[in-house]
């Protein structure tokens, strides 16, 4: 028969053994996690994008804008407007939301489906012309969005407020200029 004291001593011994084992396991797990973390590569980032400011002004979209007609490309040049910061892309990469006008505009540009026709970086495509960099003056921009004359659907102030439209404009305005074609070997004829 086992005495009460013996039992208590055995329990204590068992407790100590269990505690030691748990401690050892914890140390091993922590060490493994540190090792794995050290070996894990950082999340790949997209390549850097253009940084130069634009020297162009886009005309308002014309009727028949859905045709892939190079004649609709913007002409003329004016200094870049606004002072929105340059973006690395249309989608912010950092976890923290970009609260600059262009950053807010980037999210609104996506949310409101502008990218569907004018493409992710506002560079334009077969369904809609390029918007930026260096867009048309804001007043014309706003007027066209509210009352488009071509195939573009109208966006009322109920759908996009004036303030949101200004943010989208800031995003469009912040689009960096591409490198000159002569510096892109793949585009040299």
């Amino acid at each position: 028969m086992t005495s009460h004291r013996d039992t208590e001593a055995q329990r204590k011994t068992n407790y100590l053994c269990v505690s030691a084992t748990l401690w050892l396991v914890t140390v091993i797990v922590v060490a493994m996690m540190v090792t794995i973390a050290a070996q894990t590569r950082p999340t790949p980032q997209p390549p850097p994008r253009r940084t130069a400011p634009p020297p162009r002004t886009a005309p308002p979209p014309k009727r028949g804008e859905s045709q892939p007609d190079e004649d609709r490309a913007p002409k003329g040049s004016t200094p870049p407007q606004g002072s929105a910061p340059q973006q690395q892309g249309s989608s912010p990469q950092s976890a923290a939301p970009d609260t600059t006008p262009a950053g807010v505009g980037a999210a609104l540009y996506k949310k409101n489906g502008c990218y569907e026709c004018h493409v992710d970086d506002a560079q334009g495509g077969p369904q809609g012309p390029r918007l930026g960099p260096n867009p048309i003056p804001f007043a014309r921009f706003q007027a066209y969005v509210r009352n488009p004359t071509g195939d573009m659907p109208p966006f009322t102030a109920k759908v996009i407020s004036d303030q949101d439209l200004a943010s989208i404009y800031a995003f469009v305005q912040s689009r960096p200029m591409p490198p000159p074609v002569r510096d892109i070997p793949l585009l040299v004829p």
Partner: peptide, 29 residues
Amino acid sequence: AADRARVNASYAWNASPVSTARLAAELWA
């Protein structure tokens, strides 16, 4: 018009996801 097309292709040249113009140019090369 062809020159203008090349200029248009240069926009969003280094963007990710890949621009469709960049894809076409890379494939052509």
